[in-house]
C-alpha cells in the first residue's frame, strides 16, 4: 500500500482550505492593521470612535447573552423529550429539527410577518380587544420590542442545532448509568443533574461553542426585523464594507468578531473541560 495515498486524498481539501480559509484570514488580519500599505491602528481607532460601535458591540453581546441560555434550556428540554420518547420519536425529532434548514433571513421574515404593523401579533391583540389600532412595534421608539423580536426569531431558528447535538450526545450515554442512579435512590431531577448533565459535557461543549459563534455572527435576522435600527457587529461590518466602502474598518470589525469568538470558545472549553480518562 503506497504510503502517500492518505496524503493524496487529503491534498485537495487541504489546498482548498489553505486558499479559501487560511489565506483570507491572514488577509483580513493584515487589512485591519494597514491603511494605504502602512502599519497602523487607524482602522481600529476609526471603528471604535464611530458612535455606532459601542451600541453594535453591546447589542451583539446582549443578544448572545439572552439567546444562548434560553436556547440551552430549550434544547436540553427538547433533547430529553426526544430521548425519552419511544413512539413518534422520529416525527417529533423531524419537527424540532425543521428550523435547522431555515435560513436566518427566512426566519427574520417569518417573525416580521408576526411583528409588523399589520402582522399577526397586532391582529391577535386587536381581536382580543387589547388594542384599538395596530401598534408600530418595530420602530426606533421601541428598541426593546425589536430586541424581543430578534431574540424570539433567533431562539426559534437556532435552537434546533443544539438540540440535535444534544440528542446525539444523550444517545451515547448508556441507559444503565441512569438506572444505576435510580437504584441508588436518585430522583428524576437528580438523575438529570448528577448523571446526564456531567456525561453530556462534551456535547454541551460542542453545542455551546457552535451556538455562541453563530450568535456573534447574527446578521440577516437583525436586518430583516430591525433594519439599521438595531446595529450588531456583523451588520456594521457589512455597512462599512458596502455603504462606506472602507475595507480597513470592515476588517477591524471582522477581527473584533473573531476575537470575541475565540475568547468565548476558550472560556467554554475551559469551563466544560472533561479529562480524557473521564469520558464515556
Amino acid at each position: 500500500m503506497p504510503r502517500a495515498l492518505p496524503y493524496l486524498l487529503l491534498l485537495p481539501a487541504t489546498l482548498f482550505l489553505v486558499v479559501f480559509f487560511l489565506y483570507p484570514f491572514v488577509n483580513v488580519a493584515w487589512d485591519s492593521v494597514t491603511r494605504g500599505g502602512e502599519m497602523t491602528l487607524a482602522n481600529y481607532q476609526r471603528m471604535a470612535s464611530h458612535w455606532k460601535f459601542p451600541t453594535a458591540f453591546w447589542n451583539t453581546l446582549l443578544l448572545a447573552g439572552i439567546v444562548v441560555p434560553i436556547q440551552l434550556a430549550m434544547a436540553l428540554t427538547m433533547a430529553s423529550i426526544v430521548t425519552k420518547l419511544q413512539k413518534g420519536r422520529s416525527t417529533l425529532l423531524y419537527i424540532f429539527a425543521i428550523p435547522l434548514g431555515i435560513s436566518d433571513l427566512a426566519a427574520g421574515l417569518i417573525w416580521l410577518a408576526i411583528f409588523e404593523q399589520s402582522g399577526f401579533l397586532n391582529s391577535m391583540l386587536y381581536g382580543l380587544g387589547v388594542i384599538e389600532r395596530p401598534i408600530l412595534f418595530l420602530s426606533y421608539q421601541n428598541t426593546w420590542v425589536i430586541l424581543l423580536a430578534i431574540v424570539l426569531a433567533e431562539v426559534w431558528r437556532a435552537t434546533a442545532i443544539m438540540m440535535v447535538i444534544l440528542v446525539a450526545g444523550m444517545g451515547l450515554i448508556p441507559k444503565e448509568y441512569g438506572e444505576a442512579a435510580e437504584v441508588f435512590g436518585a430522583s428524576r431531577w437528580q438523575r438529570f443533574t448528577r448523571v446526564t448533565l456531567p456525561m453530556l459535557k462534551p456535547s454541551l461543549q460542542t453545542a455551546l461553542i457552535l451556538r455562541v459563534i453563530l450568535a456573534f455572527e447574527v446578521f440577516a435576522v437583525v436586518v430583516a426585523l430591525g433594519g439599521t435600527q438595531f446595529p450588531v457587529l456583523m451588520s456594521e461590518t457589512y455597512q462599512w464594507q458596502f455603504t462606506m466602502q472602507d475595507r480597513g474598518v470592515a476588517a477591524a470589525y471582522a477581527m473584533v468578531i473573531l476575537g470575541i469568538s475565540v475568547a468565548f470558545t476558550l472560556v467554554i472549553l475551559r469551563l466544560l473541560h472533561v479529562p480524557k480518562e473521564a469520558r464515556i
Partner: peptide, 26 residues
Amino acid sequence: KEAFRFLVIMTRAFPLPLLALPLAVM
C-alpha cells in the same frame, strides 16, 4: 492526521462568512 483534523475543526471556531471580505478583493 491530527494537524489536518485540527485545521478542519478550527474552521468551525471562526466566523466563516467574514472570509467574503478578503475574498472579494482576491
